[in-house]
Design a binder for these strands. Sequence first.
DNA 1: AAATAAATGATAATCGGTCTCATTTACCTT
DNA 2: AAGGTAAATGAGACCGATTATCATTTATTT
Lengths: 152, 152
Amino acid sequence: MPLTAEAIQKLKEKMKGKGFKLTGPRRKILEYLAENDGHPSAQEIHAAIRQMLPGTGMATIYRTMDLLARLGLVRALVLNDNRLHYEIDRDGDHHHHLICTGCRRVEEFASCTFEHLIGDIESATRFVVKRHDLEAYGLCPDCAHKARCAGE
Amino acid sequence: MPLTAEAIQKLKEKMKGKGFKLTGPRRKILEYLAENDGHPSAQEIHAAIRQMLPGTGMATIYRTMDLLARLGLVRALVLNDNRLHYEIDRDGDHHHHLICTGCRRVEEFASCTFEHLIGDIESATRFVVKRHDLEAYGLCPDCAHKARCAGE
DNA sequence: AAATAAATGATAATCGGTCTCATTTACCTT
DNA sequence: AAGGTAAATGAGACCGATTATCATTTATTT
């Protein structure tokens, strides 16, 4: 479910509000992320942006993603394939990722009982817990089926 | 709590039992990991091994850690600092990590009530979950204190 | 429209990790 | 205990993702 035009507008305004220029590449990157949900890598974003704005350099993608992450508009994901992936940070939407080690498909799942444990962990360790990442790796239904058919 | 000499012996035998040679570097790496608990990166392991076995190459560290991980003697950890970290896999000891974003200190915490979440995820998504990573990020007591003193 | 600071594109540099290959070594076999 | 053999090592080339540099361009301010 892509973001609405108003939501996209809000992202752009948050950017300008913090004193950052709303440039061509930044505008396109925001639109791309908002209109396609998924978990693209910098390379994938670069390829997509180049279709609309040829000549956009890789460095700009990295710089912009870093900025968006610092602004809290985007989250960086470690999916264990030696590159960072990104997703729009829909506020209030807490979820985690399930990565198929067969085909690299990424699914999201919402249920997270971890929140309930944070208090216990904090009192046991005296840490102040800010955030947490949870990724589960396994086989998607298709790949699990194929694996089963291939015997063992 | 470092591993006992017998436990270290067991690791070495598991290695030989699977048909892998117990070489100098491998022996030292196992001993290092067993005697120091912590979550060292390949670079840290390399530095430590070189003190005992100068001339040990970086590639050997990577190859050995990969082997140990495949044998299930060691687990690789993603602690969000662009490099893998490793820890001895004490069998039956399921825990997760709490990373201080201030000083990079890593603490462990056990997650007892967490396991059934995996079952929920499997039935909701029809994935077969093989493994999962959970890391919590925050501030350790020291860094939290410093942050508080520095005023918000 | 000009001034100015920030952002960009091109490209070099860095850095974790992998690959290659000639040499060495653990561990059979005798 | 020496010798044979495949596996493991060390050195260094290589790779791919990310970061840094710097001259040029551009969004905003005046």
